[in-house]
Design a protein around this nucleic acid. Structure first.
Lengths: 356, 356
DNA sequence: GCCGTCTACTAGACCGGTTCAAAGACTCGC
DNA sequence: GCGAGTCTTTGAACCGGTCTAGTAGACGGC
């Protein structure tokens, strides 16, 4: 294994100290508090270190005594790889990484899930929990370890900071927009309501049992607007899909569009679902927005690029990431709550219902 | 210094051991080698730990003695946040994270750049260098620390594994496709050739000085095909842009399309550039592929969704991520080299040149 | 009753640093 | 010539564990 005539055994602080006949503290100081050493000695130390092939203090050991690792953890409730196929999550990550960069912090991605050991041992100073699920699994490990953390989009947890948006209001705005256009037959494409990986048409009972905060709130927002318009909520079919990517949106929308009377407008809880819905409309030979309007939620980049460009509810994904990270940089993130604004962005995928 | 005036000293292995009158080793074993303890004692230990609010061995300390942190590092040459706006990088990340998940490893994102301290202290067992730049900056830190690493897309480095694609061949296939269609006036949209943040038309001299491997190789591929078709390479304008996002593509293509004679086909070194080029064509009132053909490189998801769907060179981004991570899991990643296949995907953005 | 095995547990070195109080060496004012 | 400061440098405790070698005691065979 030895490539060259290198000295056997690992080169440590002590090796360098020994070679130079100084104390380990001195070598340590040469790296961490250069001003405490006479320039001459410091140069000697550094030179000797180089000669011996010493790459500087081992970060792990340093960290152990200092108690800080200079890293932010990010736990995602699904497998981490899912996050990378969710454009909204990617934007969020980007926001977080901007702050990490500025603060010279590493960003540690931690897969969620109850059987993930990573959360229990990940080397981080604080954690962002980008998930919408009550405390359990990896989050429990975080809490046990006493790490400071903030929850994004999820429930407000005692002792943890919080960053989120007004889901209900955003959803209500989306629904109101369609209602104002004159639509009376709506359909909803929903992200999972309950964490049972179920798919299908969610009845009122299941809607009541909605466990995911964002889904629940958005549903309530839709409902609020529908009822305010004097329509019956129970007449609005809610198609739930899990997972909830573009493909799921396509299937859910296909189901919705097969109904009679056919909905003239589709409310999707995410842009990916909405984009899938547009594909489904095309599949069915329907024009958007001529035959059916589609409104999303998120305003990811692909929304503006879509044909037609997607009407959606904009939420500041990147800013959420920045805020969450910034929160953890503060001494006590525990009490803070940030509710970021949402905004309806009207584009070309929504219009008046077809004349019948 | 006993727990006197302090509110509540930190609870450690020793605290639990002391409270129970057993050795620290025993407590440690209760967690790490339960089978070495009598069930009775083990339960007692665990119970006491719970009572005292002890969350289990501190991962950092454990790590120090074990010498493993169970984390993979990923250094990106630009600021990490850029990676999240590059769809190809996102796919790559996804591939890496899949393996991390499977192996129960944390994924540590490390910002590159020469002044990044993170690389020097990040707590990782091995590193993936997703960059196309000779060894320097953070990579130097990695090498100094003696961490195993693999380079992706970049140069072949001694002692490091390597994962890449045949850039030249992919590029040649793209160019040949256009030439076969009858195009004789091409234009190239290039990613940076030299790391000087310069923008403009790269002349032959600058092309020769190309420092980024992928850019250089793709350029050579284009050239190879052009010359094989009996055309003069020096007549093909190469527009270099930095950074090289969609917007840059739009500007570069605008410049290209303003030339007379106007190119009838555009070769872009990435799909983002190509997508920008299609926008520029629209801006100029030109039809794709009627007036101008566009071919990209990467085959990111947006390529298939574009209107018209983008002809491009597919490379297995996700698989690259998987391979790179898998390589580091092996005992000695040093000698391995993986060259993944590329493939021309013909869609709707390329066609015969307009009749003139 | 002696010896060999096993099991359950412990002592203490070790991982590779950081930190702080204190010691030594110099300088300075008077 | 002496005490007070100022710099440098050091010894030793500490961070919070893991691990190896080894011991005490129970058990079993002859």
């Amino acid at each position: 294994m030895e490539t060259d005539g290198r000295p056997a055994g690992r080169v440590t602080l002590a090796t360098v100290a020994g070679a130079l006949g100084v104390s380990r503290a001195t070598v340590s100081n040469a790296y961490n508090h250069p001003e405490r050493l006479s320039p001459r000695l410091r140069d000697q130390v550094l030179a000797t270190a180089r000669e011996l092939g010493y790459a500087g203090p081992h970060p792990l050991a340093a960290t152990l005594s200092r108690g800080r690792v200079n890293a932010l953890g990010l736990v995602y409730e699904d497998p981490m790889s899912f996050a990378f196929s969710d454009p909204a999550a990617v934007l969020f990550l980007q926001g977080v990484s901007e702050v990490c960069e500025r603060e010279d912090l590493a960003l540690v991605l931690i897969s969620g899930g109850p059987n993930s050991a990573v959360a229990r041992v990940a080397l981080v100073d604080a954690v962002i929990c980008y998930c919408d699920v009550p405390i359990e699994g990896s989050l429990a490990a975080i809490v046990d370890r006493g790490l400071p953390f903030v929850v994004v989009d999820g429930p407000r947890l005692p002792g943890a900071g919080h960053v989120g948006i007004d889901d209900r209001r955003g959803a209500a705005a989306a629904a109101r927009h369609l209602l104002d256009l004159g639509h009376t037959h709506l359909g909803v494409l929903a992200m999972p309501l309950v964490d049972d990986a179920w798919e299908g048409t969610a009845d009122l009972d299941r809607q009541d049992r909605a466990r995911y905060r964002a889904s629940r709130e958005r549903l309530l927002g839709y409902r609020e607007a529908v009822e305010a318009a004097g329509l019956r909520w129970s007449a609005v079919p809610v198609e739930e899909r899990s997972p909830y990517g573009r493909d799921a949106g396509r299937r859910a929308a296909a189901a919705l569009l097969a109904r009679r009377p056919r909905p003239t407008a589709l409310l999707a809880m995410s842009d990916e679902l909405a984009l899938g819905a547009m594909a489904a409309a095309t599949d069915a030979g329907l024009a958007v927005p001529g035959d059916v309007s589609v409104v999303g939620f998120d305003d990811v980049p692909a929304a503006a690029d879509a044909h037609p460009a997607l009407t959606t509810v904009r939420q500041p994904h990147r800013e959420k990431g920045r805020r969450a990270a910034a929160l953890l940089l503060r001494p006590d993130p525990g009490r803070d709550e940030h509710r970021l604004p949402v905004e309806l962005v009207v584009r070309d995928s929504s219009g008046p219902p077809p004349w019948r």
